[in-house]
Design a protein around this nucleic acid. Sequence first.
DNA 1: ACGAATATGATGCCAAGGCTACACTTTCTT
DNA 2: AAGAAAGTGTAGCCTTGGCATCATATTCGT
Lengths: 154, 154
Amino acid sequence: MPRRPADAQQRQAAPDLPAEPTQAGRFEQARRVQSMALLEDYAELIADLHATGGEARPTDIARRLGVTHATAIKAITRLKREGLATARPYRGVFLTEEGEQLAARVKARHLLVVEVLRAIGVPPDAAEQDAEGIEHHVSDITLQAFARFLKGVK
Amino acid sequence: MPRRPADAQQRQAAPDLPAEPTQAGRFEQARRVQSMALLEDYAELIADLHATGGEARPTDIARRLGVTHATAIKAITRLKREGLATARPYRGVFLTEEGEQLAARVKARHLLVVEVLRAIGVPPDAAEQDAEGIEHHVSDITLQAFARFLKGVK
DNA sequence: ACGAATATGATGCCAAGGCTACACTTTCTT
DNA sequence: AAGAAAGTGTAGCCTTGGCATCATATTCGT
Ligand SMILES: [Mn+2]
Ligand SMILES: [Mn+2]
Ligand SMILES: [Mn+2]
Ligand SMILES: [Mn+2]
């Protein structure tokens, strides 16, 4: 029989995706979210480069992200694999329709997160810095609450 | 000469740690922060297990985190390597003084983040869920702003 | 006391995301 | 029209953090 007596808590954890309110479920969801973070930042950045300069070259992307171009190219490979981007060799990276939609959502979320931090009293630099990581963990529900909060403050 | 004309922006990026207000600097800092996230969650959890049950066994830790025990043991190895924990084979994991301090800071930050989300109007479940990822990206400066904000609301 | 059940630890595998180094392509300048 | 400079792509290496599997250690029930 078992090895430790008073706590045989053997939950089964169905093949869920939604979130599950247990502690393990929260950590699992946090890991899922984290695995999207890099894709989100790339999509947002590529859209931004297209919106401003017109092109999204691996070297531009790499410089803006603070990584080497080799690293950027590998990430771009993943973006392509996930159906978020295409690339013409030596001619830059382009977002698919799905990639564009992701970028738009991510950009709006990023801005909203910064706004909320500022509204709470976080100094501008810290707000910009922390938002870069925080944004990825803000769920739709939370985002809606943020929007309501800002309406009230404004 | 170069290949693209109007944007030869070749900053050097000294061996900084502080943060650097450039976009690349923000991404770099976000990556540094992320590399601490797992250690923080383990430290917080081990402290919690000690506070309640008395022991922090690899299997307990694994179950609470939603990973296999093999994964937990590997992470514990890293905690030991970083001087945050010790372990007596088959007898559980223990935080060092430094580990205890980290755990205490992380726990306080976690609670404060949840409180702020709640105060903003985020539903309890979403607040708990999102805080698990957000917490790691909340800097000291931001945390202070959170504390001030809560004082004002209360 | 002993066997079964469970926990623990070690290994090996994998993908993600960093890096450096090197080869190749494109573009710019002369 | 070259040649130089910069960008691009590929390959190989590393660490982190997942997993499954297997062997070993501990504990519990009888
Ligand atoms: Mn980001
Ligand atoms: Mn962003
Ligand atoms: Mn956490
Ligand atoms: Mn936490």
